[in-house]
């Protein structure tokens, strides 16, 4: 992702008085074209009745800048996204260092983890 352009667009939302409504990640399972899968990450902003999204496809290990410097509440979504999906978010204002959740499965929504579960259940991954 283009880090500078991304932060610039988030900064515009912040300046225009939008609020951060949700940051959401969805795993994209590995394919021949994407051996390790990817993440579809969206940052959603709300203002009055409007609801808009910024979306990026992130590869495993790819660095995603935290927006917690612009939207204070982002730290919670970002810690969650890192713990549950393994998205490499860097520079989180309040970095909980993997202590937000206590999950039995490490990074349960990583593409490889999902594929392994689906295969174990006999479903097409």
């Amino acid at each position: 992702m283009d880090r500078k352009a991304f932060l610039g667009r988030v900064g515009e939302y912040q300046k225009d008085g939008w609020r951060l409504a949700i940051i959401n990640a969805t795993s994209i399972l590995p394919t021949e074209a994407m051996e390790h899968g990817a993440f579809d990450v969206s940052w959603s902003f709300a203002k009055d009745g409007a609801f808009e999204h910024l979306r990026e496809q992130i590869l495993p290990g790819e660095e995603v800048p935290s927006i917690s410097g612009l939207f204070g509440a982002a730290f919670l979504y970002e810690n969650e996204m890192r713990e549950l999906f393994g998205v490499n978010v860097t520079g989180i204002a309040l970095d909980l260092k993997g202590q937000l959740y206590k999950t039995a499965t490490i990074v349960p929504f990583a593409p490889s983890a999902i594929r392994a579960r689906l295969e174990a259940m006999g479903k097409k991954a």
């Binding site: 202590q99 937000l100 959740y101 999950t103 999902i114 689906l118």
Partner: peptide
Amino acid sequence: AIPTIGYIHRGLEMMVER
């Protein structure tokens, strides 16, 4: 104040797989 949650995390979102 540093929060820690997760004591009753049930992973319900994962159940869409099943």
